[in-house]
Design a binder for these strands. Structure first.
Length: 345
DNA sequence: CACCAGGAGCGGA
DNA sequence: TCCGCTCCTGGTG
């Protein structure tokens, strides 16, 4: 398990790397294990990818932030730069696969070796790009979790029920023991005032991990608020995110309307890096998808709808109600757990 | 046994 | 009224 990292909203998040220690074995392993976070991370890895959904959201955040604040990130940038700089010429065997091409703009490196100071500047610039990519990705993933759980991104605003939802969600994704009872009757405000020791006291097994996860949510909320204040100050309005537009049709949580099952399924399908193990497209153009883990999808749906007794039997009955409504149907060649959106995106 | 199909009653919005 | 949850019977591989 990734070691939790402390991220305080007011300090660490936007700071440059703090450590000058060597690349530890742990962080290397972490890097190899957790590279699915965003494309920028993928360039550091040429090994077969582990199943994305096994990482779970929280673990993903931890490793992201861990990387952000260590020398590892600078190393990552060096990999990115070297891979882009050789793009015109033959690539060594250890180079990246085509689909793992860096998304970071090359700072325009020439063939000649850089002077140390220029090298530092390049690293710093690329590091900023990596940082903003990672932070953006973390915010997006938290946003997804918020939509699925129907909670606000800011833990301070959570009700007792929201806190329990978040705990369930985190435990579920990160395979933690259930400790909800230890945090009973706490609302978000109370939760946020707890210290790491309080968390450990309430849950010796995973209190520190939960605390770290919560810290990241708090950081993200802080950043989001900062960004929106900044944006509204500069542009006078909140800018829209193209990625949100992509699935705004399927997102009803923003409009206050209860989410429909077909919308929920599409949300999961549009986040393959998080949910690809439990539901995935077989043919996105035709809208054909397969539920790989029926129990898992049912649990997620139950979590989203506050229906602890939800199971696949009930979920599939709801899906079948869509048949006569012309929203979902069985594909021409019927297969188990395979359905088709009548009107693909 | 897990999945599939569909009828029916119910409650919430 | 619509939507989804729940319970149900019966069928299939």
């Amino acid at each position: 398990m990734a070691s939790p990292v402390r991220v305080h909203p007011d300090s660490a998040l936007l700071q440059p790397p703090r450590s000058s220690s060597a690349f530890s074995e742990d962080s290397l392993a972490l890097l190899k294990r957790e590279e699915g976070v965003l494309e920028a991370m993928e360039l550091a890895d040429s090994k077969p990818r582990p199943d994305a959904s096994e990482r779970g959201l929280p673990g993903l955040y931890l490793s992201c932030f861990d990387m952000l604040f260590t020398e590892d990130a600078a190393w990552l940038v060096r990999v990115a730069d070297s891979s882009t700089s050789v793009a015109a010429g033959p690539r060594p065997e250890s180079c990246l696969e085509p689909e793992q091409c860096p998304v970071i703009d090359s700072p325009g490196l020439g063939a000649a070796p850089l002077s140390p100071s220029l090298d530092d500047q390049v690293e710093e610039r690329s590091l900023e790009q990596v940082q903003s990519l990672v932070v953006g990705e973390v915010l997006k993933d938290i946003e997804t979790a918020c939509k699925l759980l129907n909670i606000t991104p800011d833990p301070v605003e959570w009700s007792c029920g929201n806190v329990q939802k978040w705990l369930l969600w985190t435990e579920h994704l990160y395979r933690l023991p259930q400790v909800g009872k230890a945090f009973q009757d706490l609302d978000g405000k109370d939760l946020c005032t707890l210290t790491e020791d309080d968390f450990r006291h309430r849950s010796p097994q995973c209190g520190d991990t939960l605390f770290a996860h919560l810290d990241i949510w708090k950081s993200a909320a802080w950043m989001k608020e900062r960004c929106s204040v900044e944006e509204s100050r500069v542009t006078g309005k909140i800018q829209s995110n193209p990625d949100n537009e992509l699935w705004s049709e399927a997102d009803s949580s923003c409009s206050g309307q209860p989410i429909h099952l077909w919308q929920f399924l599409r949300e999961l399908l549009l986040k393959p890096h998080s949910y690809g193990r439990c539901i995935r497209w077989l043919n996105k153009e035709k809208g054909i998808f397969k539920i790989e883990d029926s129990a898992h999808v049912a649990r997620l749906w139950g979590l989203r709808k506050n229906r602890p007794a939800m199971n696949y039997d009930k979920l599939s009955r709801s899906i079948r109600q869509y048949y006569k409504k012309g929203i979902i149907r069985k594909p021409d060649v019927s297969q188990r757990l395979v359905y088709q959106f009548v009107h693909p995106v």
